[in-house]
Design a protein around this nucleic acid. Structure first.
Lengths: 135, 135
DNA sequence: TTAAATCTTAGTAAAACAGTAGGATTTATT
DNA sequence: AATAAATCCTACTGTTTTACTAAGATTTAA
């Protein structure tokens, strides 16, 4: 059960944006050096962040990225969702698969994994970007 | 962020034991068919569960496994720990590594991952095996 | 015109995962 | 004594995912 770098880096980069982008956009190379994340990798992440309207971009020289809405209105769940960092404790959602076959007795733990999903997603849902940055 | 089958299967198998092993031991082949998990894979998991004194074994014909203590005294965290299902949100514990270098500003999110770890581990710590089985 | 930036698509080495395979050992039953 | 059912043990392996890298196209301020 581990967080992928995609999810971690996306949050780090967004937190960086939240603290350094006042008015003007911040370039990915800045974030790259500050957070020690490869530029090319950041580029990939930001395409998704942009698609999900979490950031807006300015192209060309002096360009970069800025938050598309206040940090107080961006939840961690928004960020994770944007880069496809999903919580998957089951691999059995719809059809019955190996290790879980929806018969009440056989998959005793089915309900447990649902609760775990909710527990973790609840955390992501309740933390907002501004809370990471203040202080 | 996903649970490995090791963790899931171990909990499923332990829940199976808790419901089917009254007095006599339960063989892994029974669990294998009931839970639809490969026998050879179960064997590997149970070595670890045994090492961690969560189950006890009876060898030979009519042998099998049984819980080593009441289901009410076995936490999910015990099971996950036994099979090395760990929560790892950071990959930077001691030394500074890529993507996190302990300088206060650079790794703004360090504290966040700690909280996430605690949040998830708290769930595992607070659910006991008997709760899965009762009704 | 240049250079700094975003945008886009492919590819890829390494690690982790999810098992298999093949036996050795123990022991109740026949 | 033989058999078969079970645990025990170690090694191997195909597949998938991860975590990038590479290479270029496009945009735009200076």
């Amino acid at each position: 059960m581990k967080l992928t770098t995609k999810g971690r880096y996306a949050v780090m980069a967004m937190a960086d944006l939240a603290s350094y982008s006042k008015n003007k956009p911040v370039s990915l190379s800045e974030i790259s050096t500050r957070q020690n994340i490869s530029l090319a990798y950041l580029e990939q992440l930001f395409i998704h962040l942009k698609d999900n309207k979490l950031v807006k971009s300015v192209r060309g020289v002096k360009g970069g990225y800025a938050l598309d809405r206040p940090a107080s209105e961006i939840k961690l769940s928004n960020i994770f969702h944007a880069v496809n960092e999903e919580v998957k404790t089951l691999n059995c959602k719809k059809e019955s698969k190996k290790g879980c076959n929806h018969k009440s007795i056989k998959c005793i733990t089915h309900n447990l994994w649902d609760k775990l999903d909710n527990h973790i997603n609840g955390f992501f849902e309740n933390v907002k970007l501004d809370e990471l940055v203040k202080r």
